[in-house]
């Protein structure tokens, strides 16, 4: 069992933004190719700003904590700003993750990008240029 930081445990204990958004503007649905877990991210966008974000995750403590942190970080950001948020930023905000759990944070990044991709497709007809979820 990995040792999680206090921050991770805090978000695991009380994850923020759990759930679905009704009539979301974008949904990202990704599966973790490493261990087989699943993450869904929903976003609500107004004037190019992400006004709400929610998630559902079937996965380990790190997966739940990174989803929670990711939804926190994107709220209030413009689409362009949100796209700059990498899994590293999430890991840092959580005071680190055990090395073996880094892939879970990649899942959170992918879920967000997936949601933005979906939003762009719906609004502009084009998704993120050559966006693909990570393979590992």
């Amino acid at each position: 069992m990995p040792q999680y930081s206090e921050k991770v445990m805090e978000h695991f204990r009380n994850p923020h933004n759990v759930g679905e958004i009704e009539n979301p503007d974008g949904v990202g649905h990704v599966g973790n190719p490493v261990c087989g877990d699943i993450m869904e991210m929903y976003i609500k966008v107004k004037d190019n700003v992400i006004v709400d974000a929610k998630f559902k995750t079937f996965g380990c403590g790190a997966a739940i904590a990174t989803s929670s942190m990711m939804t926190d970080l994107v709220k209030g950001k413009t689409i362009e700003e949100a796209l700059q948020i990498s899994n590293r930023a999430v890991v840092e905000a959580l005071d680190g993750l055990p090395a073996i759990k880094l892939h879970c944070s990649v899942l959170a990044e992918d879920a967000l990008k997936g949601a933005i991709n979906d939003y762009l497709k719906k609004t502009t007809g084009k998704g993120l240029p050559n966006w693909k979820p990570h393979e590992d």
């Binding site: 069992m1 999680y4 445990m9 695991f12 204990r13 877990d37 079937f58 380990c60 403590g61 739940i64």
Partner: peptide
């Protein structure tokens, strides 16, 4: 079903 073991283990540990 529908839940992952580590997250159950952690929750029980708490």
């Amino acid at each position: 079903q529908y839940v992952e073991g580590e997250s159950m283990l952690l929750s029980l540990d708490m």
